[in-house]
Amino acid sequence: MHPCRPRFSAALIFALAVVLPPTALAGPTQLDAARITALESAIATQDIKQVTSIVLLVDGQVAYEGYFNGGSADTLNDVRSASKSVTAMLVGAAIGDGSLPGVQARVYDYFPAFTAHHPVDPRLRATTVEDLLTMSTLWECDDENAFSAGHEERMYVTEHWLDFVLSLPVKGFAPWMTRPEDSPHGRAHAYCTANSFVLGAVLEQATKQPLADYAAQALERPLGITTSRWNRSPEGIGMGGGGTRYRSRDLARLGELVLAEGRWQGKQLIPARYVRAMVSAQATTGDGSDYGYQWWGLKLPVDGHETTIWTMSGNGGNYVFVIPGKKLVAVITSQAYNRSYAHPQSRRILTEFLLPALR
């Protein structure tokens, strides 16, 4: 057997089908063997580099599962900013259980100790949870601009991340920049990890629990996820913006939950209305992609047509793709961190190999 070829058994496929309930009664999908062989060959020859796992679910059942380059079913994958999408799901869970009143909740209201001792511009005082979710706050924060006051690397070297973010100045709009009122969806999007970090801090205040504990209670245990790892800031606040670690199959469970609009084994873990908003265009990114609530709407070719595919996305080429029209969830984990080829090659795995293999 080829050293990169995954080893399956009927028992393994059956077991996974049990923990990941099918959305419809159907047998395992038969894939085009030639496409899968080509995919494994590309990984083996380093045409596709540093990918550690690929899991494909169709109709809730495992159609393909492979581990490469030292990855395994038990590996806790550092999915970097794909963590942001999980944090967005936790916001939905908190709205569903009443911990948060809704996406219009005002962010600074959750930090009275800060506002008691720091003057806050009224425009920033009006910042909502939805502003954080859509990366459209008025904080001067842009991870794609090394000169930005709120750039994530500046936050990481401070002792108090929360104070750092809440103290950021109001963003200015140079003549060549698009103002919120002139932007698609009325929001000027700027990718800012600090937004996601503060979301985690809001969740901790609202739920009265550490972020990792609330994640376990609201999502992980109900989904059968028994192992994960969440990072914390120097002051001990859960890091909702990156570095969370999950096993590949557990990432697939998260994707399946979104595919099922928040319902799992008869229980509504996240309100369906929230899930639909989460994976709908709420803002437009600089490259023309849609952006929902910390989920990306990528424009990718499907069956010869450009299609919006909603996905969790993280540095290194880590993805969880969700395609409702095909009842499909695809997980790709990769360690190509900070490599220019990381994202294109993971998208290529989906569009050049996995989707065509379904035909």
Rank of each mutant, 00 (worst) to 15 (best):
P3H: 15
P3Q: 07
R5L: 13
F8R: 02
L16V: 05
A17Y: 00
P22V: 12
P22M: 05
A24S: 14
L25M: 09
A26T: 14
G27C: 07
P28S: 13
D32V: 07
D32L: 13
A33T: 12
A34F: 01
T37L: 12
E40W: 09
T45H: 14
T45S: 15
T52Q: 15
V58F: 02
V58Y: 00
A63K: 13
G66V: 09
F68D: 04
G70E: 11
G71L: 13
S72M: 04
A73L: 04
D74N: 14
T75P: 08
T75F: 09
D78C: 09
K84E: 10
M89P: 03
M89Q: 15
A93Q: 12
A93V: 02
G102R: 06
R106G: 01
Y108Q: 05
D109N: 13
H117P: 00
V120K: 06
P122T: 11
R123S: 14
L132D: 09
L133P: 04
T134A: 01
M135Q: 11
M135H: 03
S136Y: 08
W139S: 05
E140V: 00
E140Q: 14
C141E: 11
A146G: 01
G150Y: 08
E152N: 11
E153L: 10
M155H: 00
V157M: 13
H160N: 15
K171L: 03
G172E: 13
G172M: 04
F173N: 01
A174Y: 12
A174N: 11
P175Y: 11
M177L: 12
R179P: 06
R179G: 10
D182T: 06
S183Y: 03
A188E: 06
H189A: 07
A190S: 11
Y191K: 12
C192L: 04
G200M: 03
A201K: 09
L203Y: 10
E204Y: 06
Q209Y: 13
L211F: 09
L211G: 06
L211T: 02
A212V: 14
A212C: 04
Y214E: 11
Q217A: 15
E220S: 14
P222R: 09
G224L: 12
G224H: 07
I225C: 02
S228D: 15
R229V: 11
N231K: 15
S233M: 01
P234L: 01
P234S: 00
E235P: 08
G236F: 01
G241T: 01
G241P: 02
G242M: 07
Y246I: 03
S248W: 10
A252T: 11
L254T: 02
G255Y: 03
Q265N: 14
L269W: 00
A272L: 10
R273A: 15
Q282R: 11
Q282M: 09
T284W: 08
D287W: 05
G288A: 05
Y291G: 03
Y293F: 15
W295A: 08
W295N: 07
L300S: 09
L300M: 14
T307M: 00
S313V: 09
S313D: 13
S313F: 02
N315I: 03
G316F: 09
G317Y: 01
P324T: 03
K326S: 06
L328S: 10
V329K: 10
I332M: 10
T333E: 00
A336T: 06
R339M: 10
A342E: 00
A342H: 05
H343M: 12
S346E: 04
R347D: 08
E352L: 09
A357T: 07
L358E: 11
L358D: 02
